[in-house]
Design a protein around this nucleic acid. Structure first.
Lengths: 348, 348
DNA sequence: CATTTTTCACGAAACGTTTCATGAATATTG
DNA sequence: CAATATTCATGAAACGTTTCGTGAAAAATG
């Protein structure tokens, strides 16, 4: 009795679905095939630009237009195991260097008809790991990551390109020439007539490429015989330490700096503010050089004199390496050349 | 004869695939089911947190861990027709307002476990349309778009939330209160003692929400009896027009402006530069107010005195509306309150 | 203890593609 | 003109999930 009742429900459900046909859902290849009076495979070929007899092609194309058919990427992805999507892991999108990276990587991916899944991590190692897992189960074709989690676990099967941090021999790393950048900053300060300079940086326990700016700067100073001091902020120390450091030195005429190299433009901006609060003029009293190549509003003049990272080239290289088939041909570390740009906080 | 040859190939292929088992590909639910000795459906239930008998659940979870199984989102998406992904169409990511939007929308989506496909359009109407088509065939659950294509064709089935431009009664639009913002700027300049002000803006033929800043400013000036002039750049005119306009007025003492409202912070920045080139000091000689709430490096102090758009709230509202089930309950236009922030280019 | 009801794991079907063996139709050759 | 070779549209199978009717076992009832 009850069983009969169930069957009636089942039948009525079937009747219902037949009645509804597939009125609301998007047209599929099957619909197109029926409309054009051809086989499923033929439609697939037309859609993918494979050779198909001219009369068939025309009929299929007409049907596609008529039904406003669009391929379902999820069905494609399921079958092909390729999704034409890459994930970008980056701390945030509002710091100029990151924003610029996002923009140029998106552009480089677009050029190759790839989509970009943006994953803003806020420097959170846990979130970074979550995003990696998400990207993998989302079957992205690859991941580009500027990450801070030293223990990031990566699936062997998903290509990964690291930015600014070497993550082992199997994972290519793209970075700008941080050592040369530090050196260049030192040389520039020397050329600009500085007699006593400083290097300021916020500490990072992570062994990443930007750390080499310090060694480059030291090397540059030594080779020019330029005396220098360094102040490296440790974890937990506030920016006030920089203010104390500066006051200590600037109030003592002998040790006063006439040139400062800051590890990033963000820091340079902060330091310039501190100097101005101390009554010092930039660049008249102290020349300041930052690092990154930050511009006002992303595309106007530089916010300070700076060592410019070649962001478009970094982006292009990341995407190039990511989509390159040949795993063997991928170099472990790509270092791209930096340049100096005047931005009003030095004499030239 | 040939036929036999074909069959041999076919058979050997089958033998080959059996030999290879599925050694390299990622584990599937089937593998987990086999490992745990349960049915496929049971694994699915465990993965989706549906009720399953405790002993079964434990065995499945163990198998998942052992095989390091991850669901295939593409198979899920194909079946469920929901992908937990939203697309964001935005001109670029390096202009601060856009960068901030991207960041906060990503955050709001993350909070709801949604992924974000970033589509940087470069103001290109064709690219905007391409991205919309891409998003639709990618079966995203919705699109948030700050677009400039007046003829953008949208699939009825994909929810769309517009930012800053009304796109018809069926598409909700989120924006900040641009009229109130213009008014606030006028009132602020009046409060700061200005006697003769100007409104500068770059023309846009598009009928979007930010255009209301002009009406708001006029309204504010009129209600305070503050004389004002406007200079609106037409398509194709260069920024030099602004310089000419300013020189014309500033060199004539009577008409000299002591307050300027620029339609964006970007423009304000440009104008401040022009004023400084003309030997005028900001804010001593002229006070300048921008619009957007741009900060140095995204999170430091404001780059100029400005009308701040509530970006986090805009982002939250967009995502809220996008993912809201009830289509009817979505209002056509949401206007969020703006505020004034001091940024050094006014007296207070 | 017999009967009815409930519970719940099972596994086949379906989602919309791509791939590829099949065989009919056409083209080439002797 | 016959025999062979080539071309190419066809449609079934597979990709990895979710859904849901089925039926066995357990629980509740008389």
């Amino acid at each position: 009795m009850i069983e009969v009742y169930y069957k009636i429900i089942a039948i009525s459900r079937k009747v219902w679905s037949v009645m509804m046909e597939k009125s609301n859902s998007a047209p599929t290849m099957k619909d197109v095939a029926k409309e054009a009076g051809v086989a499923l495979g033929t439609v697939s070929k037309v859609v993918n630009g494979l050779p198909v007899g001219e009369p068939y092609r025309i009929r299929v194309e007409e049907a596609i237009r008529k039904l406003n058919y669009q391929v379902n990427s999820y069905a494609q992805g399921l079958k092909a195991n390729r999704t034409h999507t890459a994930a970008l892991l980056i701390p945030n999108t509002y710091l100029p260097f990151f924003a610029s990276l996002v923009y140029h990587i998106n552009l480089a991916l677009l050029k190759r008809k790839y989509r970009m899944l943006l994953c803003s991590t806020d420097y959170d190692p846990g979130l970074e790991q979550e995003y990696v897992a998400m990207a993998q189960q989302n079957k992205v074709d690859g991941i580009i990551g500027l990450t801070y989690n030293p223990d990031l676990i990566l699936d062997e099967t998903t290509p990964f390109i690291a930015i600014d941090r070497s993550m082992g021999p199997r994972i290519p790393c793209v970075t700008s020439d941080n050592f040369a950048g530090g050196q260049l900053a030192a040389e520039k300060l020397a050329d600009l007539g500085c007699r006593n300079v400083a290097f300021l940086r916020i500490g990072s326990s992570l062994n990443n490429e930007p750390n080499k700016r310090k060694a480059g700067f030291e090397n540059g100073c030594l080779s020019r015989g330029l005396p220098y001091e360094m102040k490296i902020l440790n974890d937990g120390e506030s920016y006030e330490e920089f203010a104390l450091f500066l006051k200590e030195h600037m109030q003592n005429g002998k040790l006063a700096f006439d040139g400062i190299f800051c590890v990033t433009d963000t820091l340079a901006h902060l330091i310039i503010k501190m100097l101005s609060d101390m009554g010092l003029r930039v660049p008249e009293d102290v020349q300041v050089i930052g690092f990154d190549g930050t511009r006002h509003f992303g595309d106007q003049e530089y916010t300070c004199s700076t060592i410019v990272q070649p962001v478009p080239e970094i982006a292009e290289m990341c995407v190039e390496l990511l989509l390159q088939e040949n795993r063997q041909a991928k170099p472990p570390l790509v270092c791209l050349p930096v340049s100096y740009a005047y931005g009003g906080t030095t004499n030239k």
